[in-house]
Amino acid sequence: MNKRMTAGQVVDELRDGMTIGIGGWGGRRKPMALIREILRSPLKDLTVVSYGGPDVGMLCATGKLKKLIFGFVSLDLIPLEAHFRAARQAGAIEVMEVDEGMLQWGLRAAAMRLPFLPTRVGLATDVQRLNTNLRTVQSPYDDGETLLAMPAIELDAAICHVNRADERGNCQILGPDPFFDDLMCRAAERAYVSCERVVETEELIGGGCIHTIAMDRSIVDGVVEIPFGAHPTSNTPDYGIDLDHLKEYAAAAKGGWNEYAAKFVALEPAAYVEAAGGADRISAIAHPIF
């Protein structure tokens, strides 16, 4: 089955009020071109599940976000996310704040069609007190321990960005960390993956060791080729994090969002790459050092 789609076709399949999981982590390998496509659409009232970065910030800046399920929002090298902060400080979004490990635990539960997975994490903190939907469970064994029952985080859709994919939906992540994109895809009714390049399956397998094949095609419903589709976040080894761009984006939280949006968000992917300095410039961005 050929699963190639356009970014517009992906967003056409999304609906107001959906719960959407976004792959990547902070300032790394975020499906930013798909996010920009969402920002240009009339979609609204989204619940987003994310290891948050500028994906969350931009959805906040445009009022698309109704609720965020998260452990943090950060641009990594810029620790705090200005647009997310502004939305929280205005009381503009609902939040379910959990530990970052609880987030993958809830996704894992959904991926395995379980109602919850037990953990100690979150107990005895305000994560438990503030999230009144969180319940505890008692171990049925002799220890009788009280554990937190992390509920499954079921997603209507997942969007991710990877380095390579074939047209059937096998996905390759060449960077050092696959994060939890596979769990996002498995936890979702429908999963859409953008990639730098769609390649033949043989090229996919030849392009990196077998462990780089992060998602198999059974959990991917749509493949979109968008070169530089993670910019301004990194997509190692194709390009690093664009710190200069992220500084401009962060500064736009002080009343400059419309200008930033007109300059970048309004543009289709090819024009966007030019506006961001061109393919050569983005390809040459150094890889982040932490």
């Binding site: 452990g71 943090f72 530990d99 953990t119 994490v121 107990l123 994560v127």
Partner: peptide, 17 residues
């Protein structure tokens, strides 16, 4: 409606327990 939103709880709950 926080006066100052910071990172989020990140891994603090999991680390410390």
């Amino acid at each position: 409606k926080p006066k100052a939103q910071l990172l989020g709880s990140r891994g603090f709950p999991g680390n410390t327990i």
